[in-house]
């Protein structure tokens, strides 16, 4: 990827949570929610992060959205280190949209106030702010009259569109979307996904699209990163991930989704239901993996390049 076009980059990013035992408050162990994640996202690109609950995908989004402090590692925004603080001129350039549109809006504020709130720390006159709010509301396909509505007067899909409009109002270059449609019905989901795609194209934004739904990732993403136990186990272009999934976990995940055609075979790979372990000296997927080899017991797999932009953390693909 061209260095100039990289909007966001992480270097060995880590976020550990301490799990303390109650006795003597000793630190017992860590949950390595994000462990040694190095990714980059270019201008106009959608990078999807997929994984099951507990894989660390939401934590990664929160760290990148500056809502959590990383334990270690660096975050670069257009080559500027923003790991510890975000300079003033970059305020509003990174925004985040969460899953639940019902808790994201203050029920006592009119939509207009919710929309202009992020602009209040910037030197923008109130009149301009209101004008902007109405512009972004209409961009999300909602009538201007909704400015005077309260959140309870809107449906879930309409609320989520307000939340996205509020994120867009500061003209971000990097937008983190954490399961933005997983609480919505099929028809509403289609509306929002389509809008998000066309806005990205128009404004050349970069999306980090966090989802557990691979079908949604396939529709939205340019590249896909698969997370397991805090690590990115496979990353690659959308087509190479879907047509040539390599990591045993990626394959399991892909097989778990039924194809919509009832005549197509659905033969999911069923893994053991085991708790995630954050092994340091062996592969973290080893307990569930049906293809494990001796090497997996001894070492931690590192990224192996299998194709242009396609990397996998798995000993099965080590070329000797």
């Amino acid at each position: 990827m061209n260095e100039d076009s990289i909007i966001l980059k992480t270097i060995s990013l880590k976020k550990y949570y301490e799990v303390r035992s109650k006795f003597l408050k000793r630190i017992k162990q860590f949950v390595k929610a994000v462990d040694d994640v190095t990714i980059e996202a270019g201008r106009g690109e959608t990078l999807a992060i997929v994984g099951e609950s507990g894989s660390g995908k939401t934590t990664l989004g929160m760290v990148l959205g500056k809502l959590l402090k990383p334990t270690d590692g660096r975050i670069l925004f257009k080559e500027l280190d923003i790991t510890h603080s975000l300079p003033n001129h970059l305020r509003g350039k990174i925004r985040i949209v969460f899953q639940d549109p019902y808790s994201a809006l203050n029920p006592r504020l009119k939509i207009a106030y919710s929309l202009i709130e992020p602009l209040q720390t910037m030197s923008i006159s109130k009149r301009d702010a209101v004008e902007k709010a109405s512009h972004y509301l209409q961009l999300m396909g909602l009538p201007e009259s909704y400015m005077n509505y309260y959140p309870h007067m809107l449906s879930g899909g309409q609320r989520q569109r307000v939340v996205i409009a509020r994120a867009l109002i500061t003209e971000p270059e990097f937008l983190i979307l954490d399961e933005p449609t997983s609480m919505l019905d099929a028809s509403t989901q289609a509306q929002i996904l389509r809008l998000l795609r066309s806005i990205k194209k128009e404004k050349q934004m970069t999306y980090l699209f966090i989802t557990h739904n691979l079908a949604v990732a396939r529709y939205m993403a340019d590249r896909i990163a698969v997370m397991y136990a805090g690590q990115i186990v496979e990353i690659g272009g959308k087509n190479s991930i879907f047509q040539n999934p390599l990591h045993p976990y990626t394959r399991t995940l892909l097989s778990a989704y039924p194809p919509p055609n009832p005549r197509s075979q659905w033969n999911p790979i069923i893994p053991e239901e085991l708790a995630v372990k954050y092994y340091e000296n062996k592969c973290r997927y080893i307990d569930r993996c049906p293809f494990k080899i001796q090497e997996c017991e001894k070492n931690t797999p590192t990224d192996i390049k299998v194709d242009e932009n396609h990397y996998v953390k798995c000993f099965l693909y080590v070329k000797t």
């Binding site: 989901q189 389509r194 396939r218 529709y219 892909l254 919509p260």
Partner: peptide, 12 residues
């Protein structure tokens, strides 16, 4: 209107 996991959808 549903995204598909087994094929690319041009537009939902």
């Amino acid at each position: 209107s549903i995204p598909k996991v087994d094929s690319d959808v041009e537009e939902l």
